[in-house]
Design a protein around this nucleic acid. Structure first.
Length: 578
DNA sequence: GCCGTTTTCGGCCCGACTGTTTTCAGTCG
């Protein structure tokens, strides 16, 4: 059983316990365990194999009971407690919890008083008018339930980070142009640069909050206003996700920004730290004493102040996932994170020799205009029905075009590479002889995504053993929001990549962002070197922002990243054959 | 269910908004 499956099992237990009115702290314990497991950079099975149940027990929030359940799942593949809970609850009932505005209490009520066991049941009840007759259910509640069902059906998915970023930017601009706000900042998971976004959080100061709320709720993409108060409003956007605006006083902007940036787990950990040090942390600041006492104000103006008040240095938003950042901050071992300006090259771009849209010359010019010192053309070498691309009998023409681009764009270091398919058996699409004429081979999986993890691991290890391979392209082959990652033993593959000095790609395309933050950290721990590549198919694609974001979320410094090194250093790396 | 520089029991983060309510429970983040 893998980490994701185990986390899902605990999440389901938490939801089922909710429906039984269980102790909320017991529920939180299961939720917390799910989150801890999901954020692990190592397979639980590995930890268990190496350190036994004590290793599992040592994790925060995992005690005697939960570690025993983890052991049970690892050894038997299931959890008896979960099965027991599921006996009493129809599967459709859990889905009801996902409807906005419906929590455990209401779902429980609906089941007991109205016999609702699925979304279809609830919809029927609401439309028939029967729901409106129930105690505590007015006309508006019924309308909200129906709208919630519709919204859930229409948009269950999260949104690509670049789309969310662009919409958030439009909201900020609208608020700015209204002249009603002072400071305006994007907060939430967007500020932490999560790979996909569930909702947009905006924080602002304003002397006329009511008017600012009106402007926000009147924003062109607003489909429905979900809530609107004096300091907080929530809307559903036609793009499919919600946006929240919070208005706070300028004096507490730092505390509020910290609070609304999250993550929730990071905030809870910080609050606990506050309590241990005799103070209370909230969105209004850090205060002496408990929440009831609310003593002297210690900090609120800036995030730096907030962290200082609990004895810590500033923690960058991308690290605030409660994955050890507070401990690292305390110990003074937070990494100096890589920045966009550190990128000096791109080790994976395409031209119209395969499926890119422009010539090598044009692409090289665009890279130069962007300030890059070197690029590696990695046109496809693939059997995938692609008429164009590098074949054993077109390599001469390819290399001639590289030469031409070198002549046409002086000052730019242009490297002849290829993105070669890793075939089903782990062999590569091009012949050894052809690959020996290239200076760089990126090996990527582009087909045959479904195979057992064992077979997939063997396939990838075989490819990495090939002496020509210098880079592993988009290692998990996922397409964000569309295709799941392929499954393989990441420990084995990263260990091999580190040993062979094969660069692990962080594909910066917002369609991929592959490998992800958790695996980046794991590969770093395995000793891997990375490249943050655009995988660009046109000049406009030469964008590294979100790849940088994920690298930062994976705790990377510029020293960890090959294309953050200057051209001389890259050329030395290029000359070193394994 | 977890956890311990007051604790092995009794705590567990904190506040805003909604809808239906005569004072607040439920939900959300």
């Amino acid at each position: 059983m893998n980490n994701a499956q185990m986390a899902r099992a605990f999440q389901t237990v938490a939801a089922l316990l909710m429906l039984q009115d269980e102790n909320p702290f017991r529920i939180r314990a299961y939720e917390r365990a799910a989150q801890t497991i999901e954020g692990l950079s190592e397979d639980m099975e590995m930890i268990y194999t190496r350190q036994g149940i004590e290793g599992v027990r040592a994790m925060p929030g995992i005690g005697a009971d939960l570690s025993a359940k983890i052991e049970e799942m690892l050894t038997t593949g299931s959890m008896a407690f979960l099965k027991e809970l599921q006996k009493n609850v129809p599967a459709g009932l859990l889905e009801l919890l996902e409807i906005e505005g419906l929590g455990p209490k209401k779902v429980k009520f609906l089941r007991q008083k109205c016999g609702v066991e699925s979304i279809a049941d609830l919809e029927r009840l609401a439309q028939s008018g029967e729901l409106g007759k129930q105690k505590g259910w007015g006309e508006k509640s019924v309308r909200n339930v129906l709208a919630g069902i519709a919204a859930m059906r229409a948009h269950r998915e999260r949104m690509a980070i670049n789309v969310a970023h662009s919409i958030a930017g439009d909201i900020v601009q609208t608020l700015e142009e209204s002249g009603l706000c002072g400071r305006i900042e994007i907060a939430g998971s967007l500020r932490r640069r999560k790979e996909t976004i569930g909702d947009i959080d905006i924080l602002a100061t304003s002397d006329e909050p009511a008017k600012a709320m009106d402007v926000f709720c009147g924003f062109s993409l607003v489909e429905r206003v979900l809530a609107k108060g004096g300091t907080k409003a929530s809307v559903h956007l036609s793009a499919g996700i919600d946006a929240d605006l919070r208005i706070v006083r300028a004096e507490v902007f730092g505390a509020a920004l910290h609070y609304f940036t999250g993550s929730k787990e990071h905030n809870i950990a910080l609050r606990k730290r506050g309590i241990a040090r005799g103070c209370t942390v909230s969105e209004y600041g850090v205060y002496e004493g408990t929440a009831e006492q609310k003593g002297r104000l210690l900090a609120s103006k800036t995030e730096e102040d907030v962290y200082r008040a609990v004895g810590l240095p500033f923690i960058p938003p991308e690290l605030r996932e409660h994955r050890g950042e507070i401990e690292a901050a305390e110990a003074g071992t937070l990494p100096i994170l890589i920045e966009e300006a550190d990128v000096h090259g791109d080790l994976h771009v395409h031209s119209n020799f395969s499926d890119g849209s422009v010539t090598m010359t044009r692409m090289a010019e665009a890279a130069q205009e962007r300030g890059l010192q070197y690029i590696v053309f990695c046109d496809h070498a693939s059997s995938m029905g692609m008429v164009r691309g590098i074949k054993d009998d077109t390599i001469d023409a390819y290399l001639a075009l590289i030469e031409e681009a070198r002549r046409t764009v002086p000052g730019m270091t242009i490297v002849a590479g290829a993105e070669v398919d890793i075939l089903e058996d782990g062999s590569l699409y091009l012949s050894d002889e052809t690959m020996s004429r290239l200076d760089w081979v990126t090996a990527s999986v582009h087909a045959h995504f479904k195979m057992s993890p064992q077979e997939m691991t063997e396939r990838m290890l075989r490819a990495l053993d090939h002496p020509s391979v210098r880079q592993l392209g988009h290692p998990t082959a996922r397409l964000l929001l569309r295709r799941d990652p392929i499954e393989f033993d990441t420990d084995a593959v990263f260990a091999k990549a580190a040993a062979q000095k094969i660069v692990v790609e962080i594909n910066a395309s917002v369609f991929r962002l592959d490998v992800n933050d958790v695996l980046i950290r794991k590969a770093k721990d395995a000793g891997c070197l990375f490249a943050i590549n655009s995988d660009g198919h046109s000049p406009g694609d030469l964008d590294y922002r979100y790849g940088i974001s994920q690298a930062r979320r994976g705790w990377l410094s510029k020293e960890d990243v090959m294309n953050a090194k200057g051209v001389r250093e890259f050329e030395m790396f290029l000359d070193r054959r394994p």
